[in-house]
Design a protein around this nucleic acid. Structure first.
Length: 298
DNA sequence: TCACGTCAAGCAGAT
DNA sequence: ATCTGCTTGACGTGA
């Protein structure tokens, strides 16, 4: 079981997701940003290893505008060695990596242009992981997408479109239950036809599910991950007090985290903490795992 | 130096 | 009809 957090580290003095406005695009600006982001990424990974954090989500703006027509620069060639170097660090330390393209990446959109743009965006994500030389346990997670007034049709469109994607994407793509439209059960139905692993989001499941217990949900999600996929990835978050349902809390609550771990026994998986204070909560979670005798076997 | 309007892009649900 | 949240806040103009 690894603990992770997404994209950003507040302790370090660097930002690994520096971008800029498209209006001020220039190749130099792009190179500068990528340089900064990769440099900071390595620093974050080194911080993580020092602190027993072995799961990390890469920012999607590592290469700003990578899939946009405005970007014509061959950044892959320019940064080939840097990517490889980071990849080697990742492999040496057995770090698990994930990426999560944003809400505009919709492969089940009825609009073909949106699909085409999403395809390009996914290619970019896959190429980043390929450039690092990572195997297919490094994943790209997306949601099913929109409902467009007909859920079953939209699920079928997802499946159809999945088969149109390049192999470098298909081998890394995993689908995640969301908080309002597609439940774990819906994702499993997609998995049955595509063999896409299902990433289980605990928080979304609490807001939108068919009522499966955490134990049962993990049990079924876990079976969709084959050896080449690595172990199940789980997104974990909790409700922010006083805010509307679905907003993410500022900080982890170790008591409820431990209660989740209890409910998830005896399964092993990697946990991504989608919590606002990032590494701070990850450090607490790692400590909880390492000091509580109920969980030391992980 | 700081405040704050806006940022490439889509969708759903809340207000 | 308009706003908010989501991947992740943060860019950058104007004062």
């Amino acid at each position: 079981m690894r603990i992770g957090y997404p994209c950003l580290n507040w302790t370090l003095g660097c930002k690994g997701s520096k971008t800029f406005r498209i209006a001020s695009y220039s190749d130099n600006r792009l190179i500068e940003s990528i340089e900064n982001n990769l440099d900071c990424l390595l620093k974050m990974l080194e911080f993580n290893v020092r602190n027993n954090i072995f799961f990390f989500r890469l920012s999607s703006v590592l290469v700003p505008f990578a899939s946009h027509p405005v970007c014509k620069y061959d950044w892959q060639r320019h940064f080939r060695k840097t990517f490889l170097n980071i990849g080697n660090f990742v492999k040496k330390n057995k770090i698990r990596i994930s990426m999560h393209p944003d809400q505009f990446t919709l492969i089940n959109s009825p609009d073909k242009n949106i699909f085409n743009r999403s395809h390009k965006e996914l290619s970019y994500h896959a190429r980043v992981l390929d450039l690092m030389g990572l195997d297919s346990t490094a994943k790209i997670q997306i949601h099913v997408g929109g409902v467009y007034g007909d859920k079953q049709k939209s699920i079928d469109r997802f499946i159809y479109r999945f088969h149109k994607l390049d192999n470098i994407i298909r081998k890394r793509l995993v689908v995640e239950n969301d908080d309002s439209s597609y439940t774990l059960k819906n994702c499993l139905s997609i998995s049955a036809k595509t063999r896409i692993p299902v990433l289980f989001d605990v928080f979304h499941h609490s807001l939108n599910s068919s009522g499966e217990s955490i134990h049962d949900a993990i049990n079924v999600a876990l079976k969709t991950w084959k050896k080449k996929d690595g172990i199940l990835m789980v997104d974990y978050s909790l409700q922010k007090k006083g805010a509307r349902a679905g907003s993410h809390a500022e900080s982890i609550n170790i008591k409820s985290f431990k209660s989740f771990l209890e409910k998830s026994k005896p399964y092993d998986f990697d946990i991504m903490l989608e919590i606002k204070d990032k590494e701070k909560s990850a450090l607490k979670a790692v400590k909880a795992l390492r000091t509580d005798r109920r969980f030391v076997k992980y």
